[in-house]
Design a protein around this nucleic acid. Structure first.
Lengths: 232, 232
DNA sequence: CTTTTACTTTAGAGCCATCTAATCCTGCAC
DNA sequence: GTGCAGGATTAGATGGCTCTAAAGTAAAAG
C-alpha cells in the first residue's frame, strides 16, 4: 500500500527525530534524502493525509504512532539485512548499507522471519545499531552517547557507527574504529575534532561530523584498558 | 537505467518468445503481465526506441540481442534467488516464485555473485529451469519437451515445472510431480488432459494448460522403472 | 471481393514523485 | 515594532506507467 518512497520518508523522519528530536524540518528531510524542499512538502502532506505524520505548516513534522511502526518495520528490515549479508554472504561491514537500503523495501514478512531465524534473532546490526524486534516496539537506546560529547582523557567503547557512507566506513574500519573497540580520547580540538588512541597504538583524528555519528559507552579505566590503550 | 517494469516486459517477452517463438503479440504480453493491451503498445514503443526489441506494427515484437541480454540477466537473478531461498533459507519449492519475482530487480551484481558462490554456481533452479550463466550466453534447452506432446504409454522423467502459480505448484508437489520424478503416461484425453501414474502408485490427471507447462525427458522403459511405475 | 471479427493502436486522462520559479511566512536583528 | 533573511509553501510542468474509450487494420469467412 505504501510506496518505497513513502517508506524512505518515514524512515528518514524517524532517524532525524531520534537524533534531533521533533519537529523535523522540511529542509532536514530534503537534505537527508537528497531531494528539493518542495518535493518534501508535497510528500509530507500526503503522509499527513494518511495519518502517518502530524504536520504543522512552516514548523515541521512528527511521526504518529502508526508512522513510527512503519519506520521501525523498515529499519528492522534494513538492519536484519545488514546482519545477514555480513554473516551469511561474506559482505564486509562497510559494504552492506546500500544493498540493504534497496532490499529493505522489497522483502516479504516471510523473508524477514526466515532471515531473523537464520541469525537467531539478533539485537544489533554490524554497525552496532539496535534492530527493532518483531513486535515493533520502539527500542530504547541505552547509555550510548556521541563521541563528540566526551572529554579528553576519557576511555570509551565504540557501540554504534552510523552507516551512511561506504567511504567513511571503510576508512573507520581501517583505523580499527568499529563497534566493540575500546579507545582513549587524547584530544578534543576547539573546532570539535576528536583525536583518539586505539588499542593497537594508532591514533585517529575525526572531524566533528564524524565524531557526532559515532556512539560510545564510557568505560571504567582499569589496569587492562590502561595497558590496551597506551598514552603515546 | 532500465526501470523494474521494463525489465519485467523484457523477461516476459523472452519467456513467451522461447515458448511460442517470435514475434510475440501485444495481447500475449498483456495477458502474461496482467495489463491492458494499450499499456503494452506504449511500452514496446519505448523498448523499440531504446533498441531492446524489434517491433513491427500490428505484428508483434522480438527481442534484440541487447534485449535478450537484459532478459537473461533478470532470469539469472530470478532463478539464483529461487535456488538460494530454497537451499539456504528453508523456503519450499512452491513458495519462492513471488519473492524472487520482486527481488530479481533489486539485487546488485555483487549480491548475484555472492549468491552464486554460496550455491556453487548452480545450473538449474528448484523448478528445473536452467539458470543462465554469468556471461549471459543464451542457455540451450536440451531435449525437454512438454508433457502434453507425449503419447499414452510413454514413461518420462519430469525435468522442468514452470513456476508461475504458487497454488498449482503446491498441488503438483503434493502429487509428487516435481523435477526428477519418473512418471508413466496412462491416458491422453481428446481435450488434452493427461493422466499419469506416479511411482508411489498414485494417479494424477492434468488439464492441458498444466501439461503444457511441464517439460519432460523420455525414459527408456526398463525393469526398474516398470516396477516403479505400475500399471494400476 | 467483401464483410466481419479479432486484435492493435491512437487519443486522452490520471496518479506518482520529482523539479524550477515564484510567492509567502516566521522569527531574529535592530 | 519593523524589516529582512532564511526557510517553507504554492504554482505549474515533466516523465513514467497505467487506464478507458474510440478508431484503425489485417486476416479469415463468406
Amino acid at each position: 500500500m505504501l510506496s518505497d518512497v513513502m517508506e524512505d520518508y518515514l524512515k528518514a523522519i524517524y532517524i532525524l527525530q531520534e537524533r534531533d528530536g521533533p519537529p523535523v524540518a522540511t529542509s532536514e528531510i530534503a537534505a537527508y534524502l537528497d531531494v528539493t524542499p518542495p518535493t518534501v512538502t508535497s510528500m509530507v502532506e500526503k503522509l499527513d493525509d494518511r495519518g502517518l505524520v502530524e504536520r504543522e505548516k512552516y514548523k515541521g513534522v512528527e511521526l504518529t504512532d502508526e508512522g513510527v511502526t512503519v519506520a521501525l518495520e523498515v529499519l528492522r528490515h534494513h538492519r536484519l539485512l545488514e546482519a545477514y549479508l555480513t554473516e551469511h554472504l561474506d559482505y564486509d561491514w562497510s559494504e552492506v548499507h546500500e544493498e540493504a537500503d534497496v532490499l529493505e523495501h522489497h522483502i516479504s514478512e516471510e523473508f524477514e522471519r526466515r532471515v531473523a531465524e537464520a541469525l537467531d534473532d539478533p539485537t544489533v546490526d554490524p554497525h552496532g545499531d539496535p534492530i527493532p524486534n518483531a513486535d515493533l516496539s520502539p527500542p530504547e537506546d541505552a547509555e550510548h552517547t556521541p563521541l563528540s560529547e566526551h572529554e579528553s582523557g576519557t576511555t570509551v567503547e565504540i557501540s554504534r557507527v552510523s552507516d551512511r557512507e561506504e567511504e567513511e566506513l571503510r576508512y573507520l574500519k581501517d583505523a580499527n574504529i568499529t563497534p566493540g573497540t575500546v579507545v582513549r580520547i587524547v584530544d578534543v580540538a576547539p573546532f570539535g575534532m576528536v583525536t583518539v588512541a586505539v588499542s593497537d597504538g594508532g591514533r585517529q583524528s575525526l572531524p566533528e561530523e564524524i565524531a557526532d555519528s559515532i556512539r560510545v559507552k564510557r568505560v571504567e579505566t582499569d589496569a587492562v584498558s590502561a595497558e590496551e590503550v597506551p598514552e603515546a
